[in-house]
């Protein structure tokens, strides 16, 4: 077996194994510690869990592509907030208010467009200036957040549209609207990454950039498209979430980038690019949400979840490294 094969296998399969372990652990531990009478594996509980995974999950799909492509995006939380503000505020504009429920698709379009434009700004800067995506998006994380505040000051932006709330709270075949969006996005992104030329080239660029360039693949437009996509998905996540909640604080979405990156890395996507899968990312997202809920279920402080996830992230990194190093002739540098 070539070095790396085992770790690749583990990286792909491990997250699901981890989820099963979590389920078993919390079910059993729940018998002893649970504060509520419900079983942890209660179907309603699991469905809720999927729904709650959606906001982070939808963005994580975009982050997977970005990271496979060899970049990173720290500005998704701010993009999420700005799209939410646009979504809710636009429905209060006079001409929109006059349109009744027809304002909804328009408001969605505005929000999604906002996300895509913000993503395009990031992508364009990374492409044209050659500044590292980490720095560019670190900057725009601040900048986009500033735009959120400039839009509506420090006040929350609120608009509750009951049609929208009904839509968001609807269940179809048992799954909530948000869950459908999450699954839909996962499927679409999977198709994009595995079936389209753009997806395959994105892998190639992240894997061996020089080879891709020598083969005539234009790196810039591909990066650009991926940034537009992640901006769009951050906005979609906001659309799904705020259709229901109806109120956005200017600080909403803070630290989302960290949660998203954690989920993606747990799912086995390489930081250096070229490798990763949206399905595993979905696993990463669910694993984190399970941990959150599970710890609550067994009566642990919800705060503990941060501690546990942080340590798990480091442990995953450590294990991955151990598996990769083994068998290779390591030079001690």
């Amino acid at each position: 077996m070539k070095p790396g094969t085992l770790s690749t296998f583990l990286a792909r399969g491990a997250i699901w194994g981890f989820i099963v372990l979590e389920l078993i652990f919390f079910s059993i531990a729940g018998q002893f510690f649970s504060v509520s009478d419900n079983a942890f594996l209660d179907p309603a509980n699991m469905l809720l869990l999927l729904k709650q995974s959606a906001p982070i999950g939808i963005i994580a799909m975009g982050m997977t592509i970005i990271m496979i492509n060899g970049n990173i995006d720290l500005s998704v939380g701010a993009t999420f907030a700005l799209a939410a503000v646009v979504l809710l505020d636009s429905m209060t504009w006079p001409f929109m208010a006059a349109m009744g429920d027809w304002a909804i698709p328009l408001a969605w379009t505005f929000a999604l467009l906002t996300g895509a434009v913000l993503g395009a700004i990031n992508g364009l800067i990374v492409w044209k200036t050659g500044v590292d995506a980490f720095i560019v998006t670190l900057g725009s994380m601040l900048g986009f957040r500033g735009l959120v505040f400039m839009y509506n000051g420090e006040q929350p932006t609120s608009h509750l549209n009951w049609t929208l709330v009904d839509f968001a709270e609807a269940q179809f075949l048992g799954l909530h609207t948000a869950t459908w969006f999450l699954l839909g996005v996962t499927a679409v992104i999977w198709v994009v990454m595995h079936r389209t030329i753009h997806g395959r080239n994105a892998y190639a660029i992240g894997d061996n950039r020089e080879a891709a360039i020598n083969a005539g693949i234009r790196v810039g437009p591909h990066m650009m498209r991926n940034f537009v996509l992640i901006g769009f998905l951050a906005a979609l996540s906001a659309v799904v979430f705020y259709s229901e909640s109806g109120s956005v604080n200017p600080n909403d979405g803070q630290l989302y980038e960290l949660w998203v990156i954690t989920a993606v890395v747990l799912g086995g996507t390489k930081l250096t690019g070229g490798s990763g899968s949206v399905i595993s990312t979905l696993g990463g997202v669910i694993a984190i949400q399970l941990l959150r809920k599970g710890l609550g279920h067994i009566g642990a402080d919800t705060e503990t979840v941060n501690l546990v996830i942080g340590l798990i992230l480091i442990a995953v990194l450590f294990l991955d490294r151990q598996l990769n190093v083994k068998g290779k002739e390591a030079l001690r540098t």
Partner: peptide
């Protein structure tokens, strides 16, 4: 100069993958 995560076919036609619609 190969992309290890991709298949043999994709590497051979790197940058020139045959296209369908969309």
């Amino acid at each position: 100069s190969l992309a290890e995560e991709l298949t043999v076919a994709e590497n051979i036609y790197l940058g020139e993958l045959p296209k369908k619609r969309w």
